[in-house]
Write a protein that binds this DNA or RNA. Structure first.
Lengths: 152, 152
DNA sequence: TATTGTTATACTCTATAACTATA
DNA sequence: TATAGTTATAGAGTATAACAATA
């Protein structure tokens, strides 16, 4: 079998991985009352600490309007709060509730356990080599995205 | 650095791959007037040949109502047609238009070129080893999904 | 009675544009 | 004049439930 053909099969398997991984995350997060998009926002908030909606919109590369919707949902479900920004009265200060922090801790733990479940049974040499390939792949993909962005 | 830690980093990189790949596909398909979901449907239709909406709903693991919406879009944009089913008057026969087929040919070619761009620069031994890891990963992931499904 | 696909309704994510309050 | 966030509006994907036509 030619490498050209094997490249295509490998890409197909990666796309399958994307689908299965996405479904699994969606289902698993739903059990916490979360969606993938809202969890991305929580993740950013976790990295930065309390911040403005504008900063979150930039970080997630999404419109300010979209952040309004995501935060609306997260406030209703009790993960975060909106408070007046201490120094800029136009802006909103978004912070975790105690409940929100406790869920993030659970998610981080379950993330680590998931990684363990996926890789722990893999022989070390296979894992090392897989990571090398993965890094190369991400590099090529970024080049590809950059090249397509130039065309547009 | 512990393997436990390295597993987490590898998972993070895979999740990053998922995001970048999804964005790239979304952007690239948009230039053909397609979305990811509609393209999944076209892909299934390509594998099976003309078929019913029910069959497509089962294949995509999505509700019949969702297929109605996807086909509505694909009919408006001229990729497929709805015709009476030859033997079952309840059902709809979904087929490609000529235009739809011609776009599928272009997409298949661009898919193969994409695979080439991602992998061709990788040394053969790295590629082979990456594929081994990828297969193991998909296997573990499927086990994980099956196990979570049992809980629910 | 069961199946196919639709209408009705609702929720989420996404966007742009117009607007308010503030800087 | 520029910025932060909202309301208004719209399109896409998803779901369930009720219903029509047909099997």
């Amino acid at each position: 079998m030619s490498y050209t053909h094997r490249y295509r099969l490998a890409l197909d398997r990666i796309l399958e991985l994307v689908v299965v991984l996405n479904d699994d995350m969606t289902r698993s997060l739903a059990s916490y009352g979360l969606t993938v998009s809202r969890t991305h926002l929580l993740w950013e908030l976790r990295q930065r600490g309390p911040t403005t909606q504008k900063a979150l919109a930039d970080a997630l590369q999404v419109s300010p309007r979209t952040v309004t919707g995501l935060i609306d949902g997260l406030v209703s479900s009790g993960f975060v709060t909106r408070e007046p920004h201490p120094s800029d009265r136009r802006a909103t200060h978004v912070s975790f509730t105690e409940w929100g922090v406790s869920i993030m801790v659970v998610l981080e733990r379950s993330h680590a356990e998931f990684a363990q479940a996926l890789f722990a049974s893999m022989p070390d040499t296979d894992f090392d080599c897989f990571v090398v390939g993965l890094d190369q792949l991400l590099g090529r993909l970024r080049e590809h995205v950059a090249a397509s962005a130039e065309d547009a």
